[in-house]
């Protein structure tokens, strides 16, 4: 009899229990990974309401697809990330093509003068356009490593790369983004 509380169980055990229909086990996985998945979606969408809706969608679809998840050195969080990307693809398919990369809502505490907001919004638009012009894997590595501040090792897991490959990809991504930004100024 395993007396370890659910919250201290490994992902593999929780996944196995969730596969057997134990909703609480999957709820535990949800609480463990809701933060990074939400933050990723928010970084891609820029809207908290949409990010909330899609986050729930990601976890529900992940639960439905648990049968297709095979561990084999592939972390569960990376599986969730793949589901999140698929959910985003479906979301964009339902939207107009230009809705690609949202402008983040201003934080409530940032009550700046109007002209500062205008300048900031323009900078964000500029950055957003530059981000849209770089390849998708460049965009992803910048979001995960820079905006979400994830460790290289986690980014590597999520993107199914080695850490060395992730570092090189990030280097190229930042150089590409810098080039696009310089071309706009």
């Amino acid at each position: 009899m395993n007396d370890t509380p659910l919250t201290e169980q490994s992902d593999a055990i929780l996944v196995a229990r969730a596969r057997d229909g134990e909703a609480e086990a999957f709820g535990c996985l949800y609480r463990r990974y809701v933060d990074p998945i939400y933050r990723y979606l928010f970084a891609r969408l820029g809207e908290s309401k949409e990010a909330e809706d899609l986050t729930e969608d990601v976890f529900f679809r992940a639960f439905q697809a648990l049968g297709t998840y095979h561990e084999r050195g592939w972390p569960f969080s990376a599986f969730l990330y793949q589901v999140a990307k698929n959910v985003l693809i479906d979301y964009y398919r339902r939207q107009k093509p230009e809705v690609g990369f949202g402008i983040p809502e201003p934080a409530l505490e940032s009550l700046r003068p109007l002209d500062e907001h205008v300048i900031r919004d323009e900078q964000i638009r500029e950055l957003r356009r530059a981000m849209e012009e770089i390849p998708l894997n460049y965009r992803e590595v910048i979001i995960l490593r820079i905006i979400l501040a994830m460790p290289t090792s986690v980014v590597a897991d999520w993107m199914n790369l080695t850490e060395g490959a992730t570092r090189v990809l990030l280097h190229r991504a930042l150089a590409s983004l810098r080039g696009k930004l310089q071309a706009k100024t």
């Binding site: 809701v34 990010a51 983040p104 950055l127």
Partner: peptide, 27 residues
């Protein structure tokens, strides 16, 4: 360039209320 991207795209975590309500809904 990285600093600029980070400043303009601040990360945001979900609110505890959302997490609790959403977890219950999901279950």
């Amino acid at each position: 360039t990285a600093t600029r991207a980070r400043e303009l795209f601040p990360g945001r975590s979900p609110s505890p209320e959302y997490v609790a309500a959403s977890a219950a809904r999901l279950e």
